[in-house]
């Protein structure tokens, strides 16, 4: 039993190091891609995907939301989705809009 716990602890520690390494690699790719001679729209799209990957990694594995109680997932995911929709809607309404420049 104690051996199982020790093995499990070792496995989880190794898993966290692996997640950290993946997130670090994604960050390096994020910075590097901004220096490549690619269309701006493509760079923005790739950066958004990488941002979601990093954010999901932090929330699911470092914050342990993956596999946690449904109520805990709900009280975070619902306002998070609301926040995302709010940002997208405001950008849709006001992107490139300078009429309120004053």
């Amino acid at each position: 039993m104690a051996g199982d716990l020790a093995h499990e602890a070792h496995e989880s520690t190794r898993f966290y190091w692996m997640v950290g390494a993946v997130l670090a690699a994604v960050t390096i790719v994020e910075v590097a891609i901004t220096f490549l001679p690619l269309p701006h729209e493509l760079i923005v799209a790739v950066l958004m995907v990488l941002m979601v990957v990093k954010g999901a990694g932090v929330v699911m594995y470092f914050m342990h939301l993956k596999g946690d109680a449904r109520i805990l997932q709900a009280v975070f995911v619902v306002p998070f989705l609301l926040a995302t929709v709010m940002i997208l809607l405001f950008l849709l309404l006001f992107s490139q809009h300078v009429g309120i420049a004053g």
Binding site: F76, P79, L82, A83, M86, I87, F90, L91, V98, A101
Partner: peptide, 17 residues
């Protein structure tokens, strides 16, 4: 999350302005 979304939205909306 909603609080920071409001601040990020403000930055993005006012960027072209």
């Amino acid at each position: 999350a909603l609080f920071f979304a409001a601040l990020i939205t403000t930055y993005l909306v006012f960027a072209p302005v």
